[in-house]
Amino acid sequence: MNQNIPTMAEMAAEGKQPEILFWVGCAGSFDERAQRITRDICKILNHVGISFAVLGTEEGCTGDPAKRAGNEFLFQMQAMANIQVLDAYQIKKIVTGCPHCFNTIKNEYPGLGGNYEVIHHSQLIQQLIDEGKLKAEGGESFKGKKITYHDPCYLGRGNGVYEAPRKALEILDADLVEMKRCKSNGLCCGAGGGQMFKEPEKGNKDINIERMADILESKATVVAAACPFCMTMLRDGVKHENKEQEIQVLDIAEITVRANGL
């Protein structure tokens, strides 16, 4: 099924303005696993009939990993270039597929002149559920399945978004379980602060392995994620424990798409 994914350039050429810009992010654009999440977010947008567009090749990294790693120059270069593009298209509202992009555009771009209403895709899904536009019917049944949710740092502690992703899971009629470290006490997957792009410092184990213990203890068969970097770390953890047959790691958007048979 080929879906309609318009770019801002195409929209602008036709003199149209979308309701919302979908900010895909680097992981969502290039990482094969995250690309599937990106396409699923598009499916949801198309399914509910929200007019949207992406920047396509005009999008550039928000600068998040550079900023967390201490390279403020590079961050601000990226930010200002992106703000120029966004403002040229008169973007007002943005949904992101990644908590890092979400945090950076929402909190750090305003000080550099970029003011937009920014939501994370889990918040969009929550809104659509609240408005009755999105249900959990016509697709795979998650009824009775043990599902746990891993809070991404930049969505949870970073921005206080704990309920939206959980709301998306609540309509599944599944057996939702919390890990012992959840919400504001949630344990990092180990990817933030530039760690995704370097080897960890010397220690006695990797952080995602520490997190796997919480996952195994919860006995969940589905781990819901909401961040492409957590996705990578959690999947590596599952592989490390040889639990690929028993435990699936799925993004909130993928679960929504599956539950609705999109």
Binding site: S29, F30, R39, V54, G56, L74, K198
Partner: peptide, 26 residues
Amino acid sequence: MFGNMENNGAPWKYSQADRFNWADNE
């Protein structure tokens, strides 16, 4: 990572021109 971001607009070594390829892998 910094070098990649400066040159390709992404933290990995992918070409900016390929940034929208995800839509083709439908």
